[in-house]
C-alpha cells in the first residue's frame, strides 16, 4: 500500500531491453520507447490503414482521419497563413503524436510519455529549430526582422528588441514546460485523489467518506481527458504561430 500511494512512482522508466551505458547515460528500450512506437502504430493505423480504400464515401475511421486532417490544416492555415502547407506534415505529426501519447497516458496503469520534460523539450526544440533554420533559409538575414517590430519609435527600439529576443528564447521553454507540467500535475493529482479511496477504506470508520475522493478522482479524470486533448491542440497551435514568424518575419 505504501508503494501504491507514491504518486511519483508512475513516472519511472522501466528498461525492457538495456543496451549498456554511454558515460553515465543508460541506453535502454524502456516502456516509454514502447509507448512512443505504439503511438506511431496507432496513428499509422488511423491515417494509413483506415484510408487504404480511398473511398469517396468514407467509412468511420477514414472520416476520423479526414476530420483530423481538416482540423489541423485549418488551424495551421489560420495561424501561419500563406505558404504554411509545407509545415503540414510537421504540425500534423506533432499534434497526433502528442494527442495519442496523452490519451495513452490516460489509460489506467499506462505510462504518460509526455510527462517527461526531455521529450516535450525535444519536440519544442524541433519546432523552434525548424523556425530558425527555415527562417534563415527563406529570408537570409531578413529573418532577424522578427526581433524588430515595425512602427516602434527609435529610442524604444533597443528595449523592444531585447524583449523580443527574450520572448523568442522563452518560447521553446514555455512550449515544453506547459505540456510536461500539465500532464505531470494531472497524473499526480489523479493518483493522490484515487489513493485516498483505499486509504480511507482501510481506516475503519473513515471509509464512510471514501466516495468523496472517488467522485473527485472521476471528475479529475474527465478534466485530464480534456487537458490531454487541449494540450495537444495548444502545442500544435503555438507551433503554427511560431512557424508563421519563419514564413512572414516582418510581423
Amino acid at each position: 500500500m505504501a508503494v501504491k500511494m507514491d504518486p511519483i512512482h508512475q513516472f519511472e522508466l522501466k528498461p525492457l531491453v538495456s543496451f549498456g551505458h554511454i558515460g553515465n547515460q543508460e541506453i535502454a528500450f524502456t516502456q516509454s520507447s514502447l509507448y512512443m512506437f505504439a503511438a506511431v502504430g496507432i496513428i499509422a493505423l488511423l491515417t494509413i490503414v483506415a484510408t487504404a480504400q480511398r473511398s469517396v464515401v468514407p467509412g468511420r475511421m477514414q472520416s476520423v482521419a479526414e476530420i483530423f486532417y481538416d482540423f489541423i490544416g485549418s488551424t495551421l492555415r489560420q495561424s501561419a497563413g500563406h505558404g504554411s502547407e509545407r509545415f503540414m506534415p510537421l504540425i500534423f505529426s506533432l499534434f497526433m503524436f502528442v494527442l495519442v501519447l496523452n490519451m495513452l497516458g490516460m489509460i489506467p496503469y499506462a505510462f504518460a510519455v509526455t510527462s517527461h520534460i526531455i521529450v516535450t523539450f525535444a519536440l519544442a526544440l524541433l519546432v523552434i529549430g525548424t523556425v530558425i533554420v527555415y527562417g534563415f533559409m527563406a529570408h537570409g538575414t531578413g529573418f532577424l526582422k522578427v526581433f524588430v517590430p515595425s512602427g516602434v519609435p527609435g529610442w524604444l527600439m533597443p528595449m523592444i528588441v531585447a524583449i523580443e529576443i527574450v520572448s523568442f528564447i522563452s518560447r521553446p521553454i514555455s512550449l515544453a514546460v506547459r505540456l510536461f507540467a500539465n500532464v505531470l500535475a494531472g497524473h499526480i493529482a489523479l493518483k493522490i485523489f484515487a489513493g485516498f479511496v483505499p486509504a480511507l477504506l482501510a481506516a475503519g470508520a473513515w471509509g464512510i467518506i471514501s466516495p468523496l475522493p472517488l467522485a473527485l478522482s472521476i471528475a479529475v479524470t474527465a478534466l485530464e481527458f480534456l487537458v490531454a486533448g487541449l494540450q495537444a491542440y495548444v502545442f500544435a497551435t503555438l507551433a503554427s504561430i511560431y512557424l508563421s514568424d519563419a514564413l512572414h518575419p516582418g510581423h
Partner: peptide, 25 residues
C-alpha cells in the same frame, strides 16, 4: 535517462514524420 529517451523519440518521431509526409497526408 535523457540520451536514451532522445534516441527513441528521434526514431519514433522520425518514423511518424516519414509516414505522414510520404504516405498518409
Amino acid at each position: 535517462t535523457f540520451l536514451s529517451q532522445l534516441i527513441w523519440l528521434a526514431l519514433a518521431f522520425g518514423l511518424l514524420y516519414y509516414l505522414m509526409d510520404k504516405v498518409a497526408l
